[in-house]
Design a binder for these strands. Structure first.
Length: 679
DNA sequence: GCAAGGTC
């Protein structure tokens, strides 16, 4: 790279401000033949478009953010400052800041070419406000970083989109006001009671996520499993054994199931009354977006979503894969697929697969794509650069991305299925299914999907396979919900909470604060997490649900459309939040909050404790969690006993030993058996 | 020290 002396900055120029270096590169090359040089390690591009000198510079995300010099509560004084000045982790921004502060002020026109969303509008606006002149500013509006679209956006420059920037600034300030004030309120209440400091937090995204985690935790631990007897028939025909299951009917008690089993066994045979064969074509999955990559890395390798994201970012910075923070399931049409595959094929471990793929497709490379799109970026794909010295986990994630990319071009997999409908001696219907993967298709490239293969003998209508055995199995219902990093990430995505870049990070924050903890592959809520949740639902119920985000979205839309002013929206929030905080400070509530927190983490002795878990209670012998479990158990125990055909005591014993039963339910069942708690 | 949003 040539040094800064080689950067011959023209005397007169317009400046284009990109959101990140990669985008600056794309923009510069789309508009002409740029001269690339660097100041420090920050690349800049100089080019001439129709006689006008253009300098393309870039930020690296947000350069400025809300901050304050004020301690204490409530805090409504917001100062926007360069992030690197108050956030250690943003130090890498400093060289970008230096370049912008040197090159932007001397420009004639200032063109905001950051991503076209309210964050991008804010990033560019703040830079122009700091170093340029808003009255000589323009906006480039594009929805993808393709050369054609960038050229068109440059030909049709828009006025600076001040309203979008105002919406982005309001977003940041509202999040900051809610987050900082309520977090400080929590910490202050704790400090007031214990005299100790403890890092606590609350926010528009993290708190509803904590609330959802607790909803799941309560559901799982208060779950009373219901037994469901199921019948399985093993049949024999022409020397081949196979399995049949009830079709369109079921039994609810073990007694009924045993009666059916006896009848069927005594009937000796079943009769095949119809057969159907089908062949199902399964298309390959689309290339990855960030969430799908996180899901698959968790499913296949047990990687946490955050770890996967970190690794993907490393791979991106090493130029091995495209931009990972994307929602898109579409590949860029301008990408030379053949070239990428050829260079992947130069890695020994993929040579054979790439050869097969080119053969199977006859070189016609048309990828399967998904519906999801992203205005700023395509799906994640390998660039074809040769990796060097990847450690195990980087290798693993890279391999997933490469295979998923190859699979997108591969032919569908073909499954052949056979379904036989049989009748037993009492004309009840049963079904036996056979399935086999007739053609592997894309599964050869992305072998992480398993289909349950099973064989049937050759059957014809009227055949009478022999009933070899019939078994009654009792299966118990599960809670139907999981609590893990991945399940929370999926929930956040489904509820449009957070962004692709922040979801995994915010989940980590809940773990870092000690609100959630890992127990093997699943997660648990800590006493601290539960106490924070209880305190916040009293003090700031707005923060507990996704509706605050929905309110934000409405307000920000109005600001974007010019129907509301940023000042008004923000000052309304300031008033609301500071009144909320003052109300707590001026009442005894701050002590009540702190005491609640301190009691739950064992810093202060509670008045009374739960007889089972020792959690603080308000005078009762069981905590509200065990009381909820007890109430669920009382509602269901008779039905459990009826289905099993056993006494209530025996049903309690079965539940207390059942792994699908919630922990608190098992606790309560055990207590009832011991006679200390009346059923 | 606290949020959530960008990104090296």
């Amino acid at each position: 790279m040539r040094s800064s002396r080689d950067c011959n900055i023209p005397q007169y120029y317009d400046v284009i401000i990109a959101e990140k270096p990669k985008a600056a590169d794309k923009i510069a090359h789309a508009l002409g033949s740029p001269f690339r040089c660097a100041i420090g390690r920050v690349p800049i591009y100089i080019l001439n478009v129709n006689g006008t000198n253009i300098v393309v510079v870039s930020s690296a995300g947000h350069m400025f953010g809300p901050s304050t010099g004020v301690e204490g509560l409530p805090v409504t004084m917001i100062r926007w400052e360069p992030l690197w000045r108050f956030d250690r982790r943003s130090k890498y921004l400093r060289p970008y800041y230096e370049v912008l502060s040197r090159l932007v002020p001397k420009a004639r026109y200032f063109i905001n070419a950051c991503d076209y969303d309210i964050e991008g509008s804010t990033i560019g606006y703040k830079i122009i406000e700091a170093f340029g002149d808003k009255s000589r500013a323009k906006r480039m509006k594009f929805s993808s970083l393709t050369a054609a679209e960038l050229r068109q956006a440059f030909r049709r420059l828009q006025p600076l989109d001040v309203n979008n920037a105002m919406a982005g600034i309001a977003r940041a300030e509202l999040d900051w006001l809610w987050g900082i004030n309520i977090s400080r309120l929590l910490m202050k209440s704790y400090r007031e009671v214990t005299g100790e400091r403890l890092s606590l937090s609350a926010g528009r995204v993290q708190t509803p996520t904590l609330a959802e985690a607790i909803r799941r935790w309560v559901k799982i631990n208060t779950h009373v499993p219901i037994p469901q007897p199921s019948l399985t028939a093993r049949l024999l025909h022409k020397g081949v054994e196979f399995t049949a299951y009830p079709l369109g009917w079921s039994v609810s008690t073990v007694k009924e199931a045993r009666e059916v089993a006896k009848e069927v066994k005594e009937g000796m045979y079943m009769e095949v009354i119809s057969l159907s064969r089908a062949s199902e074509s399964v298309r390959p999955p689309p290339p990855f977006n960030l969430t799908d990559l996180q899901k698959e890395a968790a499913r296949i390798y047990g990687l946490s979503p955050y770890k996967t994201q970190e690794v993907a970012e490393d791979l991106y910075l090493a130029a091995l894969i495209s931009y990972p923070r994307t929602n898109s399931e579409k590949l860029p049409p301008t990408l030379n697929y053949r070239e990428v595959l050829d260079s992947i094929g130069r890695q020994p471990k993929y040579r054979g697969l790439v050869g097969d793929l080119l053969r199977e497709t006859g070189g016609v490379l048309r990828p399967r794509e998904g519906p999801a799109d992203d205005p700023a970026h395509p799906a994640i794909y390998p660039t074809g650069e040769q990796p060097t010295r990847l450690d195990r986990v980087h290798e693993t994630v890279y391999d997933l991305i490469v295979r998923r990319f190859m699979a997108a071009f591969a032919p569908p997999a073909t499954l052949s299925t056979v379904s036989a409908v049989l009748t037993d001696v009492k004309a009840r219907r049963w079904e036996a299914r056979g399935l086999n993967v007739a053609e592997r298709g894309w599964l050869k490239y992305y072998p992480f999907h398993k289909f349950d293969e099973s064989q049937l003998p050759t059957l014809n209508r009227g055949d009478r396979p022999l009933v070899r055995s019939i078994t009654v199995k009792v299966s118990w219902s599960g809670p139907g919900l999981r609590l893990s990093r991945l399940s929370l990430l999926e929930w956040m995505e489904a509820n449009d909470l957070g962004t692709k870049g922040t979801r995994a990070r915010i989940i980590e924050t809940l773990y870092k604060r000690g609100f959630i903890t890992s127990r093997g592959s699943h997660a648990e809520i800590t006493n601290l997490g539960y106490a924070v949740y209880k305190v916040l639902s009293e003090v700031a119920p707005e923060l507990m649900s996704v509706s605050l985000t929905r309110d934000f979205e409405r307000m920000l839309d109005e600001i974007s459309m010019g129907k509301a002013s940023r000042e008004e929206v923000v000052s309304r929030a300031k008033k609301y939040i500071s009144e909320l905080v003052e109300r707590q400070l001026n009442s005894n509530n701050i002590k009540v909050m702190g005491t609640y927190l301190a009691e739950f983490i064992g810093k202060v002795r509670p008045r009374s404790r739960c007889a089972i878990c020792g959690r603080p209670t308000d005078g009762q012998s069981l905590c509200e969690l065990h009381l909820a479990a007890k109430s669920n158990l009382e509602k269901s125990i008779d039905e459990v006993a009826r289905r099993l055909g056993v006494s209530k005591e025996e049903a309690l014993r079965r539940i207390s030993n059942n792994r699908l039963a919630g922990k608190w339910v098992r606790d309560v069942a055990a207590l009832m058996i011991s006679g200390k708690e009346r059923p």
